[in-house]
Simulated assay, not measured.
Amino acid sequence: MYALKDKEMIFVFTGPHGAGRKTVAEMSGSTLGMKQVISYTTRPPKATEEDGQDYHFISPAQFVQAQANDEFIEVSTVNDHLYGIKSADIESMFELSGSIYLILNRFGAETLRKLYGDRVVLIFIYADRDKLEQRMRESGDPDDIIAKYLSYYEDELSFRDECDHVFENVDLAHTVFDLTKTLDLYLNRNLVDLD
């Protein structure tokens, strides 16, 4: 496991599927000059997803081999697909940036918090159930997948009490603005507020 150096921080974006955590994380990360550690998964890519940008899409055999080689620091199963984070990826991203971010479900977030303690900042992004369903429909998710994700909604929402910061993502620009200001308190980048 990678040992964090002084001032290195890990920001973990979590929350229900469809809440916009990926978009919010990417926009905030870009503004603050942070690098993303991308997870590996055995699920097939959606039409809008790109290998190496959204996930590293690998076969179940490749995943099992990497797991056997003890390459993952965290592994979870969602909807019968495996997801994992490689320790080597965390280390290489820290070489490029003093702080990194990941987009994970609650189980991945909990694992990183256990591994790295208070150097992990958990950020919970959510929206109401109807908004999530609308966003999933707009992104072309099939009805059975939407129903499955919505069945986890209450359970996922309960995790917000475990997180350091909670943002309801109703208006993307406002969410990103507020979040970036909050993260800057950790990073001391001294962003200028032009309001």
Rank of each mutant, 00 (worst) to 15 (best):
I145S: 03
R119N: 14
D184T: 02
G52V: 11
S158V: 05
R106W: 08
D144Y: 12
E91W: 09
L112H: 06
D193M: 09
V37G: 01
M34G: 06
T31R: 15
I145A: 06
T48Q: 12
D178R: 00
N105C: 13
D80N: 14
K35V: 00
V170F: 08
G108R: 05
K86C: 04
T182R: 12
K46E: 15
L187K: 10
R43Y: 12
V75K: 00
D54V: 03
L194Y: 08
A147K: 11
Y116S: 06
F57N: 06
D51F: 01
D54T: 10
G140R: 02
V176A: 09
D128R: 10
E91L: 13
T180R: 00
Y153G: 01
V78G: 00
S76A: 15
S28L: 09
D130G: 13
E71K: 10
V64C: 06
A109M: 08
A127V: 04
I90Q: 01
V24N: 05
I123P: 01
S97D: 08
V75F: 00
G140L: 05
L187R: 14
G108Q: 07
F167E: 04
N190F: 04
T42A: 08
D141M: 02
E133S: 14
V166A: 07
M9A: 10
F107N: 12
I146H: 01
L115Y: 11
E168T: 13
A68P: 00
A25S: 15
A19I: 09
V12D: 02
I125G: 10
M136Q: 10
L150E: 03
M93C: 12
E8I: 07
S158N: 12
H56S: 07
E8R: 11
D193S: 11
D155T: 09
K181I: 03
S28M: 13
G29E: 07
V166T: 15
N79L: 15
R21C: 14
S99P: 04
Y83C: 04
D164M: 07
L102W: 02
D130L: 06
L96H: 15
I10H: 09
F107D: 06
T23F: 08
T111I: 11
E49T: 02
L82Q: 11
A3G: 01
T175N: 08
S151K: 08
K131V: 15
G140F: 09
D141L: 06
L102D: 07
D130A: 15
L150R: 05
D51L: 02
